[in-house]
Amino acid sequence: MNLSNINWKQLSKTFAAPLVILLALALMPFYGWEYGVSLFSHFLIYIILTVSWVMFSGATGYISLATAAFYGIGIYSAALLHPATGFSLPLIAVIIVSAAASFLVAFIVGAITLRLKGIYFAMFTFGLVLLLFQVINYVETSILGQRGRFVALESNETIYYYLLGIFVVTMIVTFFIKNTKYGLALRSIGENEDAAAHSGVNVTMVKVLIFAVSAALMSTVGVVMATKTIYVDASTAFNPMMSFSPALMAIFGGMANLYGPAVGAVIFSYVQEILQTGNLNNYYMLIFGSILIATILYMPQGLMGLIQNLWNRLKGAKRALTRG
């Protein structure tokens, strides 16, 4: 291996900022801000969900509203395999099992439905959330006579580091997909699916595979979160808001680069957090809706797109000045 071939300058430019951010995040529990760990776990959940949503939907333009379904599969995996009493697998094993289960479900659902046109796919995926909720709720209460399930409690620090780990994996997977032929194939599907198919891309396979990978990542978040909320029933596991939020966060943040969805996720989850007093939550939803419409109408590239445009304009202005 010849080290001199590597463009160190380029490499440090690409990775310096992410590494610094990661280091700052990794030291979070040592700052002595006890609630901060919980708060940043909350951010990480939405960042991971949003980034994995963008991984598939952002590139292909297929709007998936199944996030809550996969998140719920994760929660139920934890409830079944990591319960408060009785036989319990280690958390890491539960995460792997849940990711595999979610991958499988998404693969099957994707294989069936990804030939559908945009709107139908969105409705179908949203229906999946409702179906899973109804069927699981029915089986749990009416057939098994269950009254909810309990998951073993983990410490906030454990939860935080697991989420951080999943976050890093998600980012690496996204980066990998973007910079390989899969990313190219996905984007060509998003631009013109027929043309992509004609130019030799196995359209269905690529779509289904990436959909399944993003679903697997979503479910791991569910597993970790279940160890925090402890009590699990179908209505807590399959909350439709978990489907809507990542989509909006991604659209607001902008899907052109890796940072956009993450920025959108942090902004929205923080706004949600500070509105947790009084009856302000209704205003949160009202703002949520208004920003969604405004973003679609006036900021099609999202917040990061807007910032980039402004930046480019500033740069352009500077150049113009020096020239003059």
Partner: peptide, 24 residues
């Protein structure tokens, strides 16, 4: 196709606005 997707997302926005005005 893009109009349908964006239109649906805008309708989602509308959904949140109308529902929460009613809740308020």
């Amino acid at each position: 196709g893009v109009f349908e997707s964006n239109g649906m997302l805008a309708a989602f926005g509308l959904y949140f606005i109308v529902q929460n005005i009613a809740v308020l």
